[in-house]
Amino acid sequence: MYHFTDDCLIGVEQIDNEHRELFRIINETQELLDNQILNDKYDHIIETVERLEQYAEAHFRHEEDYMESIRHPELSLQKKQHLFFRDKINGITNSFSSDNAQQEVLDDLLRYLVTWLYRHIISSDLMIGKLKPSGSRIAPQFSDAYLTGIPLVDKEHRELFRIIGDVYRVMTDEYAFDKYDEIVHLLEELRDYTKFHFQDEEMYMESIHYDGLEAQKRAHEAFVSRLEEMDLAHVDENQQETLENLMEFLTEWLVNHILHTDKKIPTGAQS
Rank of each mutant, 00 (worst) to 15 (best):
H72V: 10
M127D: 13
L250M: 14
E252I: 15
E104M: 08
L32M: 14
R169V: 08
L106F: 04
A58C: 05
Q240E: 14
I37C: 02
N238I: 11
G268V: 08
L109K: 06
I45D: 05
K80P: 00
F161Y: 09
R119Q: 06
R191E: 13
Y66T: 05
A176P: 00
E104R: 04
T48P: 01
M171N: 14
P133C: 01
S123L: 03
M205Q: 14
A233C: 07
M203A: 08
Y112W: 09
D99M: 12
Q36M: 10
E156R: 08
H72G: 07
E63K: 14
F142P: 03
K155Q: 11
V170F: 12
H3D: 12
K132E: 10
D34C: 04
K132S: 13
L152V: 12
D211M: 12
H197P: 04
R137T: 05
A145F: 09
L75I: 15
V255Y: 02
P140E: 07
L160E: 11
S207Q: 09
E182W: 06
V255M: 12
E74F: 02
R162P: 01
N238G: 09
E206C: 02
D262Q: 14
I37D: 11
E21Y: 14
I208R: 14
I45N: 02
Q30C: 01
I45H: 03
T251K: 10
L106K: 07
T242V: 08
E237I: 04
D173V: 11
A56Q: 12
G212F: 01
H72K: 03
E188W: 00
G165V: 15
V153G: 04
Q78K: 03
Q102E: 15
R162E: 10
E201R: 00
A222G: 15
T267N: 13
D154K: 01
F85R: 08
V114I: 15
Y42I: 11
A139G: 01
M203W: 05
Y118L: 14
L113F: 05
S225P: 00
Y112E: 05
D178R: 05
E229H: 03
D16S: 03
D34K: 07
P73S: 08
